[in-house]
Design a protein around this nucleic acid. Structure first.
Lengths: 124, 124
DNA sequence: TTATTAATGCGATTGAGTTGCAATAATGAG
DNA sequence: CTCATTATTGCAACTCAATCGCATTAATAA
């Protein structure tokens, strides 16, 4: 299914880029300025994830956050990193800390989701 | 608020103990045999978490899982470990792999939630 | 045995995320 | 540029996990 360029898609990506952090649908809707339907935002986010533009973080508050990871397209040896969710400003940022582990024999890995929570340096 | 002993509480803990893994409310309700209200199960689970009997794992499928961690009461230096969620049998197990990281300056940590997903050794 | 109040069941509610469907609009062909 | 195709959007309804209010039940201590 070929993608089309729309103002909505650009606006969503732009808001996330500007924030420099991972954002939830709610946060995006608040910051985006124009009125965009909730379902549309989710669809845009999901498409970006499919296309490898964004990555999805499942936070311990049960919500999904979406981030542009600069490392994603660089084919690094350690694509998995920790995330930090600030309970005060409700944002998630990608920490430059690789996640290291040795999975036991016969386990097959498809997803890594590591989120540390607390108060970030800006809110401390 | 003083706790009271009830058959429900014992049954919930027993099911989790028997499974040896982390379980969701749904899984507990299925396995427990007797009919216990959904809200009650959640309340029991939340109370056990408050009391330090269980710990809560927020999985990347958006659901909560509850586990008895044998290490919880041993005051280890590394209480945080990885969890593995099997996408086939829908269980989560605590892996004996410590989570190591050095949080940047001025960050305050309150929660660690690390979940690896894929197929476990029993389902491979 | 009785009073206190924690625990439970039920139904309603919240909140995140998804889906069906009709309307709109981006793109490529002519 | 015009038109047809179909991706995208908005809206409303819906699913699912989890919570909450309230009346009822039952564990505990006096």
């Amino acid at each position: 299914m070929k993608r089309r360029n729309t103002a909505t898609k650009d606006a969503v990506l732009s808001v996330i880029e500007t924030s420099g952090k991972a954002m939830s649908q709610t946060a995006i809707e608040e910051k985006i300025g124009v009125a965009i339907n909730r379902a549309t935002i989710y669809r845009v986010l999901n498409r970006y994830c499919e296309d490898g533009i964004l990555h999805r973080i499942a936070a311990d508050n049960g919500r999904q956050y979406f981030a542009i990871c600069v490392k994603c397209d660089k084919a690094e040896e350690s694509p998995h990193h920790f995330h930090f969710r600030c309970e005060k400003c409700d944002t998630i940022e990608c920490l430059p800390i690789p996640v290291n582990f040795a999975l036991p024999k016969d386990y097959q890995l498809t997803q890594v989701n590591c989120v540390l929570s607390g108060v970030c340096k800006d809110c401390a």
